[in-house]
């Protein structure tokens, strides 16, 4: 029940931005505003998903049962962000889009992040976990670390100068990934000491 509420609440920003878009309330450049809003919500859900384990380990609440919803919402926003770019921004001009993906590193990086999220979204259900098997599934889903790093980089690469907002997201992603690295090094250190 609560999990369902997460999906519904998580979809509200999308409903709101599309409502404002179709009623001409998104300011001077509505296409850019739509793209940016959807992209930022995607990044927020990616960061939220990354934060769940550190939060639990550091003595916070255990929100792990909401992680699938958070991850799927991240994919939902990433998809809408991509559609907004393909349809509203580029007008489905696939020649221009193809060139953008190959020639523009920020588009390449963003598109790569999206591609990584596709298999993760497809396997985010109980049937797939059973089919793949827990350990293999977990290995597969570690790819989200790379997707998060790419998404944060994508944001930095498409702005001029160094405005604060993309740097803050990049900082959050870096901190949450560093937490994994520290845990991994501690584990490996522990194993090495036991072996010695």
């Amino acid at each position: 029940m609560l999990r369902r509420a997460v999906y519904v609440i998580g979809a509200l920003p999308a409903a709101w931005v599309f409502y404002r878009g179709f009623t001409d309330q998104l300011g001077a450049d509505p296409v850019r505003s739509l793209e940016k809003t959807l992209g930022i919500w995607g990044l927020r859900f990616l960061v939220a998903g990354l934060a769940i384990t550190p939060l639990r380990r550091l003595g916070g609440p255990n929100l792990v049962r909401y992680r699938r919803a958070v991850g799927l919402l991240a994919f939902f926003y990433a998809s809408l962000h991509l559609y907004a770019y393909l349809w509203f921004d580029q007008g489905l001009d696939f020649a221009a889009i193809g060139k953008d993906i190959l020639k523009r590193p920020y588009v390449t990086v963003g598109f790569a992040a999206f591609l990584i999220l596709v298999p993760l979204a497809i396997t985010s259900n109980t049937a797939m976990i059973k089919r793949i098997g827990g350990p293999a599934w977990q290995r597969l889903h570690k790819w989200v670390y790379l997707a998060c790093a790419l998404a944060a980089t994508h944001f930095i690469m498409l702005v001029k100068s160094w405005p604060a907002e993309p740097l803050i997201y990049a900082g959050l992603v870096a901190a949450l990934l560093a937490f994994r690295l520290v845990v991994y090094l501690q584990k490996r250190g522990g194993r090495a000491r036991r072996a010695a």
């Binding site: 001409d24 998104l26 509505p30 296409v31 739509l34 007008g91």
Partner: peptide, 13 residues
């Protein structure tokens, strides 16, 4: 380029 104020969400480049 996108001309500001031209066509809202369906503005063509």
């Amino acid at each position: 380029e996108r001309r500001i104020g031209e066509g809202g969400l369906s503005a063509k480049r």
